[in-house]
Amino acid sequence: MSSVSVVIPCYRYGHYLADCVSSVVDTNPGVDVRVLIIDDASPDDSADKARAIAAADPRVEVLVHEQNKRHTATYNEGLMEWADGDYCVLLSADDLLTPGALTRAVALLDANPNVGFVYGHPVHFQHPGPPPPARTDDRGTSVWPGHWWLERRFREGTGCITSPEVVVRTKLQHQVGGYDVDLPHAGDIEMWMRLAAHADVGYVRADQAYYRLHGDNMSLTDYAGQLDDLRQRKAAYEAVLTRCGSLLPNAAELDAVVHRRLARFALRRVVRAYDRGRTTTVPLDELIEFAAECWPEYRSLPEYRGLRVRRQIGPAAMPYLQPLVLSAVAHKGREWLWWQSWKRRGI
């Protein structure tokens, strides 16, 4: 029977722990599961709740920090120092696994020694409501070459994994190392790509985890935060190339592809600010500077052509005229003709 080490970092999430641990130990037949809850010096009763769960189940252990070490150090402590099962999972205390998630992932990993990690579909649900029913019926699996999967991430410039739905081969996790402390908001993206540089990637066609949406989620949603997100993503891709570039025969191409992609993302956010009347709240200049940093020829990108039109129209009128303006990716000639006709009408 294959074994899985599940690390559950917890900071002020003690009220979620019972359901989280239950989703691991009670719904995965045929898997030898061990759980470590690491309380990162929570100021509430989270540590007491964790100890109570461990006292009732010998498969659960608890480690309590005397001082807060932050999330990345906590992740690495569990994965790199404690996890010793065949496979390992990092599961936030506010998330859940779907029934049979580990059983399905372990079956794929056992059957494919070349696969370094497995993921599936994450179900997002809004707190405090209950999670919806999970689709756990067997709809098959896929195994993709790691370099092919990694190249897709570079070409898309975004992550495709939420996080709790991932099961990693522990030997590979220890080989590639822990999470990067310099990437507090994109360390997971970098980690999946780093793993894919060394091994193939598996996918289970089922709901594998629940991701809880609530006000305390560690995400960047304001406009300044969105710029930070782009910067973190850029740093993540660059870190992968630094660490794993020697393993990738097309590293130079991937470097150019992702930097151009990130420049387009930044310019799209500037264009969207004009369309939605948010030019006073979105850091326009900083986003354009970021685009220039990523791709010095940013003025040749279709998004920049769209931005020029919006600047001519002006931020006051743009939200009202936006339905009439062609997409920023429209052909330059068509967009220019529209602008000329709009001026002639004297609107």
Rank of each mutant, 00 (worst) to 15 (best):
F265Y: 07
D26C: 11
V240M: 03
P29H: 05
D48A: 14
S327Q: 10
R305L: 07
Y298V: 11
V181E: 15
V60H: 07
P249V: 08
A206S: 15
E165S: 09
A256P: 04
L337P: 01
A73E: 14
V7T: 11
W336M: 05
A107L: 01
D216M: 05
H185I: 03
A273F: 03
R310S: 05
Y13I: 02
G314S: 07
E297F: 09
H174I: 09
D188S: 03
L183H: 03
H121V: 12
R311V: 15
S300R: 14
A263P: 12
G116L: 06
D207K: 00
K171R: 15
S92D: 15
S327M: 06
W339M: 11
A54N: 07
G159S: 03
Q226E: 14
Y179I: 04
W149D: 03
W338H: 04
V24W: 00
V123H: 02
T141W: 02
S3G: 11
E286N: 01
A251N: 08
Q175L: 13
L230C: 03
T141Q: 04
M318F: 02
A101H: 06
G159E: 01
Q175W: 09
A134C: 11
D228K: 07
T170N: 13
A186W: 01
H185Y: 13
V240G: 00
W342D: 02
V24C: 05
T281C: 03
R70P: 01
G202L: 00
I8Q: 02
R310G: 05
R334Q: 09
L213A: 06
V258S: 03
T103P: 06
A52M: 11
F290I: 02
Y119C: 08
R59W: 08
Y237E: 02
F290W: 01
L337Y: 07
R272M: 12
R311W: 11
P131F: 01
N68R: 15
L247S: 13
W144Q: 12
T98L: 00
V181F: 07
L79T: 14
L90A: 10
V309I: 15
A239V: 02
V329L: 05
T281P: 00
W339S: 08
V24Q: 02
P315K: 05
L227M: 03
G306D: 04
Q340I: 13
E61V: 03
R311L: 13
H214C: 10
V21L: 00
D95A: 00
S3M: 09
G333A: 13
L150H: 08
A239C: 03
L36V: 15
D228G: 05
R278K: 15
N68M: 11
A55S: 14
D26G: 04
P122D: 06
G277L: 09
R139N: 15
T72C: 10
D188H: 13
G187A: 14
V257G: 02
V167D: 08
V64M: 08
I161E: 12
G333V: 11
C244M: 13
S46H: 08
